[in-house]
């Protein structure tokens, strides 16, 4: 099963855990013609059960904590979790709040951190390439 998971292009599932939309629109921008991640066969899918990579944005609100864990568990192994944007990496400007449980790496293990507020599409593509490499390594093990 493990080896077969990478015999095709990378499929990505995007979870917003309370982000401001900035990262989310840059993720979509990375998919659309200017940056065109889809030319590598990388695409956003509608269910975590189909995904190899989880793209997580946002500082993780109280309500989304359980849902993020659920989505993580639904994603088949081997998988890579990418935290996109400063909110997800360190909760960013929302560092002090009564409704935030983040950053993401306190809820689920994160493999790749993409910095920026929001990160440029190039940075997101760079992150996806790193995720690819990491999955290759996982496959070898």
């Amino acid at each position: 099963m493990k080896a077969k998971a990478l015999n095709r292009s990378l499929w990505v599932f995007h979870v917003n855990t309370g982000s401001c939309n900035g990262c989310d629109i840059e993720i979509v921008a990375a998919m659309t013609p200017r940056y065109d991640l889809e030319r590598f066969g990388i695409k956003l899918v509608g269910s975590p059960r189909h995904a190899d990579v989880l793209l997580v944005t946002g500082p993780v609100t109280r309500d989304m904590k359980k849902k993020l864990k659920l989505i993580y568990d639904q994603t088949p192994d081997p998988k890579v979790v990418m935290s996109v944007g400063n909110c997800g990496n360190s909760t960013g400007v929302f560092y002090e709040s009564y409704n935030i449980e983040g950053p993401i790496d306190r809820i689920v293990p994160v493999d790749i951190y993409v910095a920026g507020c929001p990160p440029r599409p190039e940075a997101i593509i760079d992150g996806v390439v790193k995720a690819w490499k990491k999955l290759e390594e996982m496959k070898k093990k």
Partner: peptide
């Protein structure tokens, strides 16, 4: 108020 459940991540 929310002070008792608030949290500063850092």
């Amino acid at each position: 108020g929310p002070d008792k459940i608030a949290r500063n991540v850092h």
